[in-house]
Amino acid sequence: MNLLLQVVVSGTLLAAVYYVLSLGLNIILGVLDIVNFAHGAMIIMGSYTTFYLHRYTGLSPWLLILVDMVLVGALGAVLYLAYLRFTVESPLVRMFALIGFSSVVVAAILAMSGSNFRTVQVGYGTIDILGLPVRVSQLIAFGFALLLGTLTILWLNHTKVGVAIRAVTDDRVALRLCGVNDQRLSLLAFTVGAALAGAAGGVIATYVTFGPDSGLSFAIIAFAVVILGGLGDFAGAAIASFIVATTQTFVTVYWSSALINTTLFLLVLLVLVLRPRGLLGRGRL
């Protein structure tokens, strides 16, 4: 019984982190329809930014998430302006551009930082929730997930720029005919998506140990969450995060940790077949 409770509690806390991981991808893949093979690289850039700035300035890693957002967002903007905007008509070229970008990022980190694994030590200790030990840092991460998720949803649904961004992949021509510069919107959306990936990197830096190529496993989670939740459906993604995290926890505890990825894959497959528009049936096809 106690174990079950622990599983639920840690699954819930984990879900928040997974939700943050999925936000940037949900904008870039779900809204902009760019299969972002560089999502993992963007995440890990955020993690390393936090690591080095924390080491050299001693600033709180939570504060540094803002810096991660600015830095990774700016890099995303440069990537979009320098390359991606020329590839709107050729997804294959774009795919290679993004894969290329992420290998450059990984190689650059390797060259600058070596292959050492890095950890950002956050203290704060643990507190008891329902009699279970919970790290305070996990709670802060949970708060960040709520905050970033809410802001993203508000931005996309209740500002005119956000609404226009959701229309970009529907019909670029129609958007232009409304007097909207669709390229500029795509740039903005890509930048925000990259910034959110950077934020996710900052959040995970506080609780995992990472190396130059650790981005991949987090990107896989993010893809699973976005597909399960429905492309571009941010509420669906929240539910999907919870399902992914608790499934992972349950499978590990009551079955075998070696089966996590298999289970995730089957789950995604099942949803793709039964609910191609995601759990809530509202995602883009």
Binding site: V163, D171, V173, L175, R176
Partner: peptide
């Protein structure tokens, strides 16, 4: 096209071409 739209040239395309992801209001 977007600059012409801002001059005051508006176009209703064949097949209506609404944004299916958005509501009528949006």
């Amino acid at each position: 096209a977007d600059k012409r739209a801002r001059l005051g040239i508006s176009m209703v395309q064949e097949g209506r071409r609404l944004f299916p992801s958005l509501s009528v209001q949006e």
